[in-house]
Design a binder for these strands. Structure first.
Lengths: 205, 205
DNA sequence: CCGTATTTGTGTTGAATTGCACAAAACAAG
DNA sequence: CTTGTTTTGTGCAATTCAACACAAATACGG
């Protein structure tokens, strides 16, 4: 089926490359090299070449890479040559910040709905959205065929809500709740926990 | 000095273990095993044992680990057997959410100040804090001997602000701006970019 | 057209990380 | 006290990941 499985660790670096390329393009640059790109993202040139070459031959010897061409290809590889609808679950400060976040534009994502179980929040406006009741979540996810969710509920509720998301057909969860989630193998989870990230640095102080 | 250097990848898992242990302790549990902990965090029991054994012998054969004892030791290893003062730079939605975030309590951190360069934000109240002018940042960081910063400024300003933080003596930056930062080797950076995290998952859809 | 300088893609080597398996320790039950 | 069960810590093997180094392709200046 899939001839050569790409390691997660390589896939994980592609968005970093893409982000740096996007900034180069914004500055009006047309081409770059693995060397230059590597200096921007703090990764060795050899590694960048190997990573990119897993997916095809996108560069030219002597010249390097066309920034636009490489961006187009990375977007297609990452399946963000389209806009994905994303829901936010949990209408607290973090959920609100994500609704207002401008950084999804041009990166492949669009927040389309925000849910909460707290009746005092349901019906309130956050940005351009009205907070929806979580009891209607399954139905809404299914009818809009949404695959991505960002989870910003309290830790104690996170697993329970994640289970509901999985049942509703969500395939990828960006989890802001400070707990590890248990989900089926075919559902991906990425974790964002500021305390964990800070703790990874205090060790070195 | 340090006889055996611990790989970053192991250090990176310790906060995950600690977080799971904290939840076990909250539920009143007293002991656990590498097996049980592994099921909670999705990591093999053998790996957890190896990781922990890098720092000493904290378990008992036949019994497993005392949750409280292991937590105490992990906290000491990660140097969070103290409360670190952290500043927020950038008083937008994300900076505001971080100021209000309850998840730093009991995890080793405390937000003590928030800065912005936008004169229309300086002086405004966010939570219990008044937004400080970024021109006073160096002085404040030095006088309070702050080592940790969370960066929530726009991408175009991030490198410039990071440079200032480094000059001021900041040793660890949690960067929410969607750019790779260039900092001296003795300064650590961790990245949080929701778009990057989502893009790491769309590949698999 | 020729020589020099770049830069990719990749085969090979080396390092880092993970998985396996088991002796030794601790406990529980009878 | 003995036997059976649990579980750690770790040596060794296997796998994964990163670095090195270079042939081949391209560009460019004269």
């Amino acid at each position: 089926m899939n001839p050569n499985k790409i390691p997660d660790i390589i896939v994980g670096r592609l968005p970093i490359y893409l982000r740096a390329l996007q900034r180069m393009a914004d500055r009006g640059l047309k081409t770059t090299s693995s060397q230059e790109l590597g200096e921007h993202v703090g990764i060795s040139a050899a590694q960048i070449r190997k990573d990119i070459s897993q997916f095809g031959e996108f560069g030219k010897q002597g010249t390097g890479y066309s920034i636009q061409f490489l961006m187009d290809n990375l977007r297609e590889i990452l399946k963000i040559d389209q806009i994905w609808d994303v829901i936010v679950v949990g209408a607290g400060d973090m959920g609100s910040a994500l609704v207002h976040y401008q950084g999804f534009q041009n990166r492949g994502f669009r927040v389309v709905m925000i849910f909460d179980s707290d009746k005092s929040k349901v019906g309130k406006k956050i940005g351009e959205f009205v907070v929806e009741d979580i009891v209607n979540m399954l139905e809404k996810i299914k009818s809009l065929n949404i695959k991505l969710a960002m989870l910003t509920v309290p830790a104690v509720a996170a697993q329970e809500v994640a289970d509901k998301l999985v049942v509703a057909g969500i395939k990828a969860i960006l989890n802001y709740a400070p707990v590890s989630l248990n989900v089926p193998m075919n559902v991906k989870v990425q974790y964002i926990d500021p305390s964990v990230h800070l703790q990874r640095m205090t060790y070195y102080l």
